[in-house]
Nucleic acid binder design. Structure first.
Lengths: 219, 219
DNA sequence: CGTCGGGTTGATAACTTTCAAATTTCGTGG
DNA sequence: CCACGAAATTTGAAAGTTATCAACCCGACG
């Protein structure tokens, strides 16, 4: 049923907007290749990146269910994505409760990651926060075969990290230096290298259980 | 169909745990009376409150869909709630796509609020953050008839606010004093009073559109 | 070549936490 | 109804973390 939805495959260059804040037209995507950021712009010119999406992730679900997109979606790299029409998705919910349950599970998983992000910003200092965030990205990438315990390819700039972590770009730079100098992690030239994975996990108090790799409860 | 789920009505005193971190048994609730906090405890003894639930809100949805509850739920006040069994809810999804879509809509609305909370922690200073958070609670309470533009009854302690806002309780106290001295808001003896609603909205850059009062798209 | 985005570093300022202590509020038992 | 103790609130001072401002460096690209 999902594959019936796979109608339009589209490519977007880095920087183009898939969904912009306030947009009314509704469609969603499944990301096939590349990275995307979901963010919200604030009146004073700053922005908060809510999450990054990696291949396999669903984009813009909320823009289907809400009448108005409440945040913007922008490719970090050039990407390839499959467009899913709102009407088709809603029909699929009607015809197959299993699909609806699966999508709900995915939404819940996203929310669990959102909670960890919230904790990053609320109760972890810059060092822990950065370590935790990069570890989580690693865990997600590993699930889709794009990362290992050694590291992963990461197209983000330090500005991206700053806007995701609620820090200034300058401070992100200092934190990355500290992580590097302590032999924990190297963030350089498009790669994240875990120099000391266990040390990082300890520092970040990282616990993968919230990612719940067991999948949706369909039976 | 939802009313068929309304089987067990239960009362919990303030402080008892409805769902605790790591719990395996699965059940969810619809809150009828009182306030509840969803939070996560961190290794170093601190905690982050993810959200407060008010009457009409769904509790513990995630603990149904995931095998393990990834956070704890604790009443702020004595509460009354209707227990919903996981199996019943999942059956309801099967039998009625409309129910599934509605629950998905509710989950998306919660996520939209989560995004604003994330922005509070990531990109707003303590004053803006506190104002924004209390305004959002007011907007939610107004929807269920428990608040007006004048204010609302609020059972939270300054510690609750601190753990929700990612601040120390001491600093919350100072921020509340500043809001009071600037004639914007009074937080005292279980009430939030908007002394200058428009001024608060301006300060907090508050925009209600993300609450999307139009409801789920069922047609 | 020259420009530009990204990265790096130092100095200073702003914000928030921590620690410590006083004061007030509130529920409970006498 | 009052006294008491616990919890919540309030305030001050000092310390710590992060932002801001201002340069400078570097490699990619037209």
């Amino acid at each position: 049923m999902l594959s019936a939805l796979h109608k339009r495959r589209r490519t977007f260059p880095a920087g183009s907007d898939l969904v912009y804040q306030g947009q009314v037209e509704r469609s969603a995507y499944i990301l096939v290749r590349g990275w995307v950021s979901s963010y919200k712009l604030l009146p004073r010119g700053t922005r908060q990146i809510v999450d990054f999406q990696i291949p396999g992730d669903f984009l813009g679900l909320r823009s289907i269910l809400f009448r108005t997109a409440d945040h913007s979606i922008e490719p970090v790299t050039s990407i390839e994505a499959i467009e899913v029409l709102a009407s088709d998705l809603i029909d699929a919910f009607r015809e197959s409760p299993r699909v609806a349950t699966a999508v709900l599970w995915a939404a819940s998983r996203d929310e669990a990651m959102g909670v960890e992000h919230l904790i990053d910003l609320g109760r972890r200092d810059a060092l822990q926060r950065t370590a935790h965030f990069l570890l989580e990205l690693g865990a997600r990438l590993k699930l889709v075969g794009l990362g290992t315990v050694a590291g992963y390819a990461c197209p983000l700039s330090q500005y991206h990290l700053a806007d995701a972590l609620g820090l200034s770009a300058v401070h992100v730079n200092r934190v990355l230096r500290q992580l590097r100098e302590e032999g924990l992690l190297t963030f350089r030239s498009g790669r994240v290298i875990f120099d000391n994975f266990d040390g990082l996990v300890t520092l970040a108090e990282f616990d993968v259980s919230y990612l719940d790799q067991s999948g949706p409860l369909l039976k």
